[in-house]
Design a protein around this nucleic acid. Sequence first.
DNA 1: AACCCCTGTGTGACTTAGTCACAGACATCG
DNA 2: CGATGTCTGTGACTAAGTCACACAGGGGTT
Lengths: 227, 227
Amino acid sequence: MTIDNQKRAAMTQQLRFLAQADDPFSRHFFEKAVFTTLNKGQYVCHEGSSCSHLAIMLNGTARVYKLGENGKEITLYRVDPGESCVLTASCILSEVPFPAIAVCETAVEAVVIPAGDVQKWLSESITWRNYIFGLVATRLTNIINVVEDVAFRRMDKRIAEHLYKRTDRTSHLLLATHQEIASELGTSREVVSRILKEFELEAIIRVTRGSIELLDPEKLDRRRCEI
Amino acid sequence: MTIDNQKRAAMTQQLRFLAQADDPFSRHFFEKAVFTTLNKGQYVCHEGSSCSHLAIMLNGTARVYKLGENGKEITLYRVDPGESCVLTASCILSEVPFPAIAVCETAVEAVVIPAGDVQKWLSESITWRNYIFGLVATRLTNIINVVEDVAFRRMDKRIAEHLYKRTDRTSHLLLATHQEIASELGTSREVVSRILKEFELEAIIRVTRGSIELLDPEKLDRRRCEI
DNA sequence: AACCCCTGTGTGACTTAGTCACAGACATCG
DNA sequence: CGATGTCTGTGACTAAGTCACACAGGGGTT
């Protein structure tokens, strides 16, 4: 899909590395970038697939997760607007197969860059280089934090953390099943159910089918931070 | 420390990306590279430190691990000869603080490159770019495998795997305390002791103070692979 | 309404893993 | 030899994960 002026303005807004309009890189970028939309639930990368394009998110979010042999899942990170799936990026650049699964959590708008140009621009543009390496470093840090979480923190703290981060600030609601939360954290549904019940008894939340209402954010915050 | 011809030959041997002698990059590399040695047990990067240099390993190994609040550790990956600490690399390039700890497991010989040149060569040399991105991709994959391990696999399988991988092939010995194995896998010493005892009862290994003798590699392999 | 069906949740019993406290066992060095 | 520090073993307990199954809520359908 070609990129009209309206989309172009929106993208310049969204992608900070395009801000320097004088940079010839921006011109190259718009020459090669292709606008795409994806539906909610659509898979972007499969485990072990090699990547021929780099997608940069404009709107929506994607979840990158690892699937265990027993069918359990754990979220590694999310790709939010302005970001990109660096796993893809580094797989492009080194031709290592992609070690996880990426799926759209919402409807998604993105621009897609062919692998060759991703490579080429690295040698031509410091802006692009900084963008890519910034992503790599933050992802590495993300994933290392996941390791730390899984290896060292207790389940109730991790669930508290998750509720704290992902509950809607205005409605105080989190729309998610216990199974979804379990898949987020790499545990099992029963464990989530039990701990949520605990929190409910402490009057921190109210649990209903498919949604959780946050009653006492402060108490949750305390629960989350204690060791 | 300057690099004499002998070292230079050894390095060309060790670092595959220097193999193309006609590449002007090799010349730049030897102009800027500084040879260093480090002692066993010496710390290379501290948590949260920013990195001003990239070290490339010539001889020896370093262990990169995460330290939990409760004092437990878990190994993220090792840096072996020819490799480099990409965490360092990506922290250099994006100025994100280093989120883990690196320590020399043996005496180490390495070459050190100033951050500025690491950057500069990325735009100049495709060889260098491929080297760096190859490292990034394999590390990401490494760490994701650690996540998978910790989140989904049972402790006895993980310990079996560890013994299998790190026991000396000729002596059939692994010189390590239970505490060291625990720190490797992010668990506690008692758990390791108990599972090793199990393996000993199954006549797979023989446990002595500070070392483990592998008696039945096949049985261990089976143990490791079952779900 | 009464029914069915699907998805989501609750629960008890059991296994595995992690924690805590403390007892021994071994090695080395004066 | 005893003293000391490191390494390992053990029991009792808590936390987390597994398994089997019961039950609840909320559409549709008849």
